[in-house]
């Protein structure tokens, strides 16, 4: 036995077998080996936090000088926009009071009021170029657990994939492993939102399973449907930018532009249900 262990090729085969078994164990959803990764991540995450925040500072100082002209132009535009929005706001306030009355009348509950918002910073990204998984600086110590929904101020970001004590990993909706059940806000039809490798670089994702009788148009809004139990109902996902047909009506998909800009994402919120 000892002599066998000293042989190189035997060792390689043994290590390979062990690793394949570990891969099998960890690929199931309820693996018990999470503590092993958590151990290292707890050590690494404070350093990652420091490094990314310093990197971000340098980046923002550089862009501060680069962008000052653009900012002036933008300022002008924004002033005009403020005027315009104030006007719109007045009319919307009117609508809101009307809407509140109607909602009360219908006794609809706002689903998202049942959630606590835990704010978190992104401290690290995936080491490779294939996946869009990132690490946030809150974990199970802040009562975050697997499969909690993650949102930004505008809409859906993704869900918690692994939760360690001080950090957790979030898989974003544009990752190729992510599938979100959504629905069209206008027609209330169910669809499926998936990440796609070729669209990911532009920050887009694909919309599948559009049944042939559904009337989809460019500019339609998509939100979460609440099916599956991970994502609460009614979080904005994005907007349809293009509809592509492969052969016929049955065989079509749409391209969705998420409301969240994944390239500039830094702060997110984890949704934790109150009960």
């Amino acid at each position: 036995m000892v002599r066998l262990l000293k042989k190189k090729s035997f060792l390689i085969v043994l290590v390979s077998l062990i690793l394949i078994v570990i891969m099998g164990i960890t690929s199931t959803r309820s693996s018990k080996l999470g503590w092993f990764g958590n151990l290292l991540n707890s050590v690494v995450s404070p350093v990652q936090k420091a490094l990314s925040s310093s990197g971000h500072k340098v980046d923002s100082t550089v862009s501060f000088f680069k962008d000052s002209k653009a900012i002036n132009d933008e300022n002008e535009k924004l002033k005009q926009r403020v005027d315009q929005l104030e006007k719109e706001n007045d009319s919307l306030k009117e609508l809101k009071t009307k809407n509140d009355l109607l909602i009360e009348a219908l006794d609809l509950k706002n689903q998202l009021k049942q959630f606590d918002y835990i704010s978190a910073n992104i401290i690290a990204k995936d080491p490779g170029n294939w996946f869009n998984v990132f690490t946030i600086d809150k974990g199970s110590n802040d009562k975050i657990d697997k499969d909690y929904a993650v949102v930004a101020s505008k809409g859906l970001v993704g869900r918690v994939m692994v939760a360690g004590p001080f950090s957790s990993k979030v898989i974003s909706v544009i990752d190729i492993d992510s599938t979100v059940s959504g629905r069209l806000t206008k027609t209330r039809d169910y669809v499926e939102i998936k990440g796609d490798l070729s669209l990911r670089d532009q920050g887009l994702c694909k919309m599948y399973n559009i049944s042939p009788d559904v009337d989809v148009a460019v500019g339609d809004k998509v939100e979460t449907s609440g099916i599956g139990g991970i994502f609460p109902k009614g979080i904005a996902i994005g907007e349809v930018t293009e509809i592509r047909q492969i052969n016929n009506e049955l065989d079509r998909y749409a391209i969705v532009k998420p409301v969240v800009d994944f390239r500039r994402l830094e702060d997110v919120f984890v949704l934790k249900s109150k009960n």
């Binding site: 390689i12 690793l19 092993f36 990764g37 991540n41 080491p127």
Partner: peptide, 28 residues
């Protein structure tokens, strides 16, 4: 080379967090 590959891959597995063991095997 094999030890470095194994160890570096294992770290990448842990940090990227989908399946543990894949990058370790590949690196080795």
């Amino acid at each position: 080379g094999a030890v470095t590959g194994f160890f570096a891959g294992l770290m990448q597995d842990i940090v990227s967090g989908k399946v543990i063991g894949f990058y370790a095997l590949l690196g080795m």
